[in-house]
Structure formats: structure tokens, C-alpha cells
Amino acid sequence: MTVQPASGGVAQRPTATGLADVIDSILDKGLVIDAYVRVSLVGIELLTIDARIVVASVDTYLRYAEAVNRLDLSESGGQGLPELMQNMKQGMVADKGKNAVEGVLESAADKLEGLVGGSEEDQERQPARRRKGGG
């Protein structure tokens, strides 16, 4: 066994949606127990995990077209056109910059919170296990 990238590049392979982050990380990843354990393996039924191949289809195209259509209407109508849109076109959105940066940090914390199952700050800082001698 070596520690190295398990995949070399962008390959055409089914990927998943729903519970997206967890499924992206653990589906088809990790050491396969069958390669190590033979005699005492217990076969267990696994629920089918809804996986979706990301390939552009006619449906995708039509959805993009409708989005372009809506985009057009909101621009020409001028109704509720957010100032944000104009800023986006110029690629300069000062206010959003701060939010985006915060978003990075928050989402990492969100994930910890969600997966460890705790809602308190303390629990994020108390992993399930740590080195002996720590306490």
C-alpha cells in the first residue's frame, strides 16, 4: 500500500448526488475489506445509493436555455434587478468578497458539526479520540 493520489485525473465515471459531500467522499473509496478478509467476511445488503452520471443531456441544454431566457427578462425588465448583477458582470463585488471568504471557514465548521452530530462549539473541538497520554 502506498499513499498517493488514487486517481490520476479527470475520468469519466459515475458520480453521485444527494448527501453530496459524504457520498462524494466515501462512495467507492477506501480500502476494500474483501482484499484482506476472506473467511470471516459477513455479506450484508447495501441500500442502493442514488448515483447520477454528470453528462450534458438535452434536458441540461434546455435548462440552460431557460436560465438564459430568464436572465434576459430580468435585465430588460429592470424589475428587481439587483445592483449585484452589474457588479458581477464587472467581476468586482467587494461586499460579496467577505461573505465568500467567511463561507469557506463556516462550511468546514458546518460539516464537522453535522457529521460529529453535535451542535455545540465544544463538540467540534472534542474529536472522538486522541492520542493516549492526553487525558
Binding site: 500500500m1 493520489p5 488514487a6 480500502l31
Partner: peptide, 12 residues
């Protein structure tokens, strides 16, 4: 955990 970086070398 290093899901994307563990490569088994034909183990077992």
C-alpha cells in the same frame, strides 16, 4: 480521512 490517497498494492 485520506479517502483519495490510499492505494492498495494488490493486498491479499
Amino acid at each position: 480521512a485520506a479517502y483519495d490517497f490510499i492505494v492498495a498494492q494488490g493486498a491479499g
